[in-house]
């Protein structure tokens, strides 16, 4: 072959460069990713799944959930709110400042300027960091998804199509185990007009024997099985529901900082 060595060299360089770009680069960038501290807390994130939740990832995968659901929340930006904590020794001046200054939806620089002004007047303030974006506005997550969220997922179930909602934070959004089971058995029972197919083969519809099963799914009014029957989840259904409850991307991290909204009891 004419110029055989040159052709080989060109192909080698082309493939070698793409290998460096697609394999070596990401491995160098993210290969050392490990469990990290949650901001302002002694907790670590993420926590490795155990038991049913760990097995549930494979049920999620086997049933093709990732074909219609993503596990990645996007964030368009971040805004800062300045919140007055204590009015301090000059309450009149501080409250006047608070009512005249713009304190919500600021950039970091504007927030720093505002908090400097209030601090100079004697008040004490906190700057709250609030992620914004369409996914976050829908309530799908508190912050964007980052590599750490997927540390213990094998394989990662990112998904690329949203026929259904994003599930990155579903365990925090819908933390009821029974709700998840009802939703898998009869999606329309809890989500009207749901396009999700029912996963009834993960359940067993059977006659109640001597004693009702303690695992039987509790249905809302109008969706209960016929009298004398009960719907019992198979181990796969329980594993899948446990996995869904384990999907909680709600920890503020260094790479995705935000101020958690604490609801007062």
């Amino acid at each position: 072959m004419k110029n055989g060595f040159s052709v080989f060299l060109a192909a080698f360089i082309a493939l070698g460069l793409s290998w460096c770009g697609f394999v070596l680069g990401p491995a160098k960038q993210l290969g050392a990713e490990k469990q990290a501290a949650v901001l302002n807390s002694s907790d670590v994130y993420p926590i490795q799944r155990t038991g049913d939740a760990a097995l549930g990832l494979q049920v999620y995968r086997a049933n093709g959930c990732a074909a219609c659901h993503t596990e990645q929340v996007r964030q368009d930006g971040v805004v800062c709110d300045v919140v007055l904590m204590k009015p301090g020794k000059n309450p009149a001046v501080v409250s006047n400042l608070v009512s005249t200054l713009k304190l919500t939806g600021l950039t970091k620089d504007e927030a720093d300027a505002a908090s400097d002004q209030i601090t100079a007047a004697g008040g004490s303030v906190e700057t709250h960091i609030i992620p914004v974006g369409t996914d976050i506005a829908r309530g799908w997550g508190l912050r964007q998804s980052v590599a750490a969220d997927f540390l213990y997922d094998t394989p990662v179930q990112l998904g690329s199509l949203r026929a259904g909602p994003d599930l990155a934070n579903v365990g925090a959004r819908l933390p009821d185990f029974n709700w998840q089971l009802v939703h898998l058995y009869a999606p329309s029972a809890v989500a009207k007009n749901s396009a999700m197919p029912p996963f009834r083969y993960l359940f067993e519809l059977r006659k109640i024997g001597d004693t009702p099963s303690p695992d039987a799914v509790q249905f809302p009014e109008g969706f209960a099985p016929p009298a004398g029957c009960e719907v019992v989840p198979t181990p796969e259904a329980k594993q899948l529901a446990a996995y869904l409850l384990s999907l909680k991307a709600d920890a503020p991290l260094y790479e995705a900082p935000f101020t958690p909204v604490t609801t007062k009891p």
Partner: peptide
């Protein structure tokens, strides 16, 4: 190519600015 810098942050320095460092909570 910093593994910790995600959009909307464009640099490690900017990300550092957004870390809650002060305030009663910290």
């Amino acid at each position: 190519f910093n593994a910790r810098v995600y959009s909307p942050y464009v640099s490690a320095e900017e990300l550092e600015l957004y870390q809650p460092k002060s305030g009663a909570a910290a």
